[in-house]
Each structure stands twice: as C-alpha cells, then as structure tokens.
Design a protein around this nucleic acid. Structure first.
Lengths: 105, 105
DNA sequence: TTATAATATTCGATAGTTCTAATATTATAA
DNA sequence: TTATAATATTAGAACTATCGAATATTATAA
C-alpha cells in the first residue's frame, strides 16, 4: 500500500490547518494577498511567530508568497482551501448545535 | 472578538483530521458504517489505539456511533467531511505536481 | 558603505500528541 | 452466575508543535 504515504501527506496538510492563528491568516487572505506586516497587525501576534506560521503553510502548499521590495506578500494557493475550511466550519457548527439540543432536554 | 474561540474550535476539528490513521478511517467510512472490528482489520492497527482515534473523531463531531449488541458501528456525521477531505487532497496533489515541475528544470 | 525596515531562522522551554501495555466496561451466551 | 467477545479507558514513555527572545538575512535609502 503506497496509500500510507498519501495519508501521511494529507495528515500533514490538516496539521498545517490545525492552529487558530493559521486559520485566521487564511481568513484574512480570502479577499486577496496581504503583506506579513499587514497580517501581523490584523492578528495581534509576534512577527517571528507569524513568520513561522507562514512558513508552515507555504511548505505545505497552502499559501504562496512573492516579494515586492522590502515586503513579502502572501496569498492562498487555491480557492479550494476556502471551500474546505468553510465545510469544516459547517460540520463544527452542526456539532455545536447538536450539543445544545442535547443540553436543552 | 469572540471569533478567537471559533478559530480554536475550528483548529481542533482540523487537529482531529491531522492523523493518517484517522484519515484512513474516514476513507473506510465513505460507503457506510463499519464496526470497530472491521475497521481494525482494515487499518492493521491495535484495538486500543483505534478506539482512541475513534473517540477523538466522535468528540469533534466527525463521526457518530451506535451500538448493536456487542458491536459498535461508526459512520461519518456528514458527507461534507468527504468533500472537505477531497478538496484538501486536491490541494496536496497540486502542490506535489508543482514540486515535480520545479525539480524537472 | 552604513543604517534601517521587513522578514526569516534558530534555540530552548513548555505543552500537546501518539503509541503500547494493562485494565476496565458492556453485552451476550453457556 | 460465570465466561467470553467487543470496545473503552488509563498511564507513562517517546515524539512533535508552539511560543518568545535573540540573531540573521534581504532590500532599500542616506
């Protein structure tokens, strides 16, 4: 089974999404590219840490970057990422609602 | 910002997907529910460990279970999970292909 | 050149995840 | 009851992720 390796890669993509700050980065990139400085302001997070998060996502192919002078702009590598995130959020919300239903009784 | 909490929850859903065995479980459940024993055979994994993986996914609302006699059957809680996984796999494959392109030069 | 702004990398402490082995629970059958 | 099959839980060792502080790199401007 060479599938094993594919599952590992797939898991590492999910791992790269499994952090609140990185998900917020993705949200901020929905409507187009942003520089690291712009992202740092929006996220209220240290520069080094943001850079680490961006590196993780770039290495997994979730975002891409381009340099323009001093600034480096990041963008989503594919709109599929937005769709996938939205679907996961829907599953989450349905799960929360189900929990509330149960608690109501 | 109450968003922070949502991002945390969303990240914990992604975390629950960020493991090769759990992704394989999801794949096995695509075409309907399976008992723990059936899954253990398919995945070639220890019983305790599989049970732990299933617990993680159940707690996050990714799978649901029902008991029938001695057996417990697990199923996906929503077809959205399949779509989300498929999209992530597409992003992964595109990233791999891009890497191969680069290496070819 | 030298100074400076923007971003990346490295390091080490802390916290979280994964696995296996052992044990517990739950439901049925003898 | 007692035995057994299916599944869950617990505990601890090994591994991995996260963060901030310090430092390095890269590109521009003086």
């Amino acid at each position: 089974m060479a599938d094993r390796q594919l599952y590992e890669l797939h898991a590492s993509i999910c791992q790269a999404l499994a952090n609140p700050k990185r998900l917020e980065v993705i949200d901020r990139l929905r409507d187009g590219e942003k520089s690291v400085t712009e992202l740092a302001e929006a996220l209220q997070i240290g520069q080094a840490n943001l850079s680490q998060h961006l590196t993780v996502m770039r290495q997994k192919g979730i975002v891409r970057s381009r340099r323009e002078g001093l600034n480096i702009y990041y963008r989503l590598s594919s709109p599929k990422i937005i769709t996938a995130c939205d679907l996961m959020r829907q599953v989450l919300l349905e799960h929360l609602e189900a929990g509330i239903e149960l608690a109501r009784r």
